[in-house]
Amino acid sequence: MVRRLPPRPRGKDCVSPLIELQGVTKVYGEGRLSVAALQELDLRVWEGELVSIMGPSGSGKSTLMNILGCLDRPTRGVYLLEGRDVSALTDNELAEIRNRKVGFVFQTFNLLPRATAAENVELPLIYRGVPRAERRRMAREALEIVNMGHRLTHRPAQLSGGEQQRVAIARALAGNPRIILADEPTGNLDSRTGEEIMGLFQRVNEELGVTVVLVTHDPRRARQTRRIIRMLDGRLVGDDPVPDEEFVRAAPGGPDGKAGEPAG
């Protein structure tokens, strides 16, 4: 795998966090019918971290991911992304941030059905105004990283679920984002394929140094990350590093068989 970025300082060696939430509250609806999906949440995520978020249904995980990904704004509180307050930006400014800083991976893949794998991966680059040839090159590179370099012209319907999710990860990676946000990325996959996808996230995190935050209901998946955040009723109720002895390396899965090898 090509290392595209110079090694960045990791974890708490870094001066300021990549993500900082200060008293973030998200309220849906108004008056007596209102629901506080997030309540006075404080959270810091440093560059290069691999984080999982766990919690029962309705605890606010997706709400948090949407705010982290700038798809939504907090009702109250401050969100600093790379030290910049993004809690009150306009729709267009948020779109710009999503385009350049964030890569999303969804439970249901969300590929455009009529577009080929390469075209799907190019999507964020189109909105960044990257010229066509350059786009092609970047898309191919991203697909090669997820071991889908041989499926450039396949359409989603011609791909298995795991392959679709790989393409989706390539799409998230294509624009060189600072952070990848994945809401239950293995939720629609069988456990073997899920394992492969988790291996991919581990590789992307370790070899490319991309920060990854993912939501999961599966404790094994959580132990495949380096830090587990637990939520309940819109609050953080746990935030623990995964000790090295508990950390699970995803079983080898990718066609190149390198996914399971230790990084570096």
């Binding site: 267009n92 779109a95 999503r98 999507l123 964020p124 909105y127």
Partner: peptide, 16 residues
């Protein structure tokens, strides 16, 4: 609608 959602998620602006 879903396609529009995907496009917006990856950075499409209103005017796009």
């Amino acid at each position: 609608t879903r396609e529009i959602g995907v496009r917006k998620a990856v950075g499409a602006k209103r005017r796009d």
